[in-house]
Each structure stands twice: as C-alpha cells, then as structure tokens.
C-alpha cells in the first residue's frame, strides 16, 4: 500500500467581489497517495483552477479560503503563514501553469531562475548551479539551455523549464494547471510523458487540472469531476470512465468527439449555473435528464463502493 500524501478536507473558496459573492469552490474533500496521478476535470467556471491555487494557499483577493484543511505530508498548508508558507511552497507542493511566459522572468537567464528557487530555500549557490544541470537533464533539455532567455525557447521548452523549477525542491505534490492547453498536440504528448516520468521516478503526486476528459483518461489513475464548484464524481480512472455514474460525467463523456469513431457527440443542453448565487440543491438539476424533486436538496458525495464517490440522488436515498 502506498501512503497518503495529500488530504483535502472540506475546502471552500469564495470571492467577495463588489458585485456579490462568487461561490467558486464549495466543500471539496479528496485525498491522494504517493505516485497518484489525479486529474481534476471540469469546464470553465467549474472552480478547478481556484481549487488548484487554494492547495498552495495562493488565492488572490477578493478571494478567501474558508476551508478546513489541506494536509500534505502531515502539514496543514492553510495554517501556515509568512516564511513557513513560503518554504512549504516549493518543498511540499508546487505548481506549473498554462502559460510559462507568465511565470518566467523575461530578462533573466532560465538557469538562474531555476537556481533561485533553490537559493531562496537555503541551498548554497554553487550547489544550486550544479543541481540546475541535473534538473535540465531530468526534463530532457540540453545543458546549454541554462544560459538562454525565455523568449529564445519554444513553447514546449519553456514548459519544461517551468517544470524543472517546480520540481527543484522535490515537492510531494505537483499541481499542473492546464500545462499543455497552449501547446500543440504533439508537444502536449511530450510534456505529459515527462510529467508521468517524473511522477514515477520521484513518487510525487501529480494533480492535473484540465478541461480535457480524454487527456485525463489517458494519463490519470484517479479522476475527480467538478461542476459548479463541487466534486460531483471521484474515483479510479476505470470507475469514472468505464462506469460513470453522475449524469454530468456521462454527459461530458458523450459530448467529446472521439477520433476513433465518426459517431456524432451529444452536447449537454443548457448552460452552467452562475456561481454568484449560493446553490441549494444539485447545481446540475436544470440540465439533467434525470432531475427529480429531491434534487432541490444537495446530494451528499457518497462512496458507492470501492472508493467510487458520486454526488447524485440517483444513487442514495
């Protein structure tokens, strides 16, 4: 049995904007063990990115984390402040973003930027420089890249650099927020292969945040499906993909065109809800083909067997 690394308990994040409260993440709980590859799947506005940021306690104002706990290796990230928090980011959990241009400094050599991550965490400069070479090798980049500036690199190379910086301090959890969405499909495959390879070598938990359920299915060992700020279904990849239970998961799966078949995908009717009003009941009800009266009450996320969780009244009474 592999050991528990990440445990998220009743996490809630809301944005207190001038135009009202946005209920971005509501009462989310899940856990992951060493070497797990967890995919957090959802469409725009599902709260998946906010959830990713909240794991690093990185929610910008007017957002506030109201949640209970994010425990990584026994440490509750949400309780940390200042220097302690800064140290935890990088050594316990780190993040790779969709657009590496936004995280890399355009006027500094990429090798220095990777080294800086380590120096800030107390590694001696000489040592950090040596480690940069190892890290570049680990992400399959030639050593001379260290002296390049971000604009001299291709999109895929930049993403490799930001992965190298993110794993520099051997974190237990790596959050990857749509890391390949801006890249072409062949490069996407290379980057996903790399993340998977790093996970295997280091036992890191990789948490992939994505809108692409096919990508999740191809890579993840566990899948969490988010809708309107909540996890509506969670389980092993085979449970969620082969035996989807939640009507939203089913709808999502049949709305994706499949390259192997000419079968016409079926869109989900209607629109996702406005997160500016608190939900009573199931948020999917207005679009759900199985909607019942009881759906006006919020369904609990229940284990229907073997760690396959679903939040739907069809499966509980």
């Amino acid at each position: 049995m592999s050991s528990l690394v990440l445990s998220v308990e009743e996490l809630t994040v809301r944005y207190f904007t001038r135009r009202g409260v946005v209920y971005a993440v509501e009462n989310v709980s899940f856990s992951a063990s060493q070497r797990d590859f967890v995919a957090l799947v959802g469409e725009s506005g599902s709260g998946k990115s906010t959830l990713g940021y909240a794991l690093l306690k990185l929610v910008p104002p007017p957002g506030r984390i109201l949640g209970k706990r994010v425990v990584i290796d026994g440490v509750d990230i949400l309780k940390l402040e200042g220097e302690e928090l800064r140290r935890a980011r990088g050594s316990l959990i780190s993040m790779v973003f969709q657009d590496p241009f936004a995280t890399l400094d355009p006027v500094r050599r990429v090798g220095d930027q990777i080294a800086e991550v380590m120096v800030e965490h107390g590694v001696a400069l000489e040592e950090a420089r040596k480690r940069v070479a190892e890290l570049l090798e680990a992400v399959n980049l030639p050593a001379h890249i260290a002296s390049s500036y971000p604009h001299q690199l291709s999109g895929g190379q930049r993403q490799r650099v930001s992965i190298a910086a993110a794993i520099a301090l051997n974190p237990k959890v790596l959050v990857a927020d749509e890391p390949t969405t801006a890249l072409d499909v062949i490069v996407q495959r290379q980057i996903m292969d790399l993340l998977d390879d790093i996970r295997r070598r280091t036992n890191m938990v990789v948490l992939l945040i994505t809108h692409d359920i096919a990508l999740a299915s191809e890579r993840a060992s566990k899948i969490a499906v988010m809708y309107a700020g909540r996890i509506v279904e969670y389980g092993s990849k085979s449970d969620v993909i082969e035996k989807p239970l939640h009507p939203y998961t089913r709808g999502l799966l049949s709305s994706v065109p499949d390259i192997e078949r000419a079968e016409w995908p079926r869109p989900i009717p209607g629109l996702p809800p406005d997160l500016r009003s608190p939900q009573r009941g199931c948020a999917f009800k207005p679009r759900c083909p199985h909607a019942m009266e009881v759906c006006d009450k919020l369904p609990p996320l229940l284990d229907v067997g073997g760690g396959h969780f679903v939040s739907c009244w069809l499966y509980s009474s």
């Binding site: 499909v185 062949i186 996407q188 495959r189 692409d212 359920i213 096919a214 990508l215 299915s217 191809e218 890579r219 993909i241 082969e242 799966l253 994706v256 499949d258 390259i259 192997e260």
Partner: peptide, 8 residues
C-alpha cells in the same frame, strides 16, 4: 493522430 488523447 497518435498524439490525440483518447477517452477509451
């Protein structure tokens, strides 16, 4: 074609 992710 090979690089396109497949659900199943």
């Amino acid at each position: 074609l090979r690089a396109v992710p497949r659900v199943k």
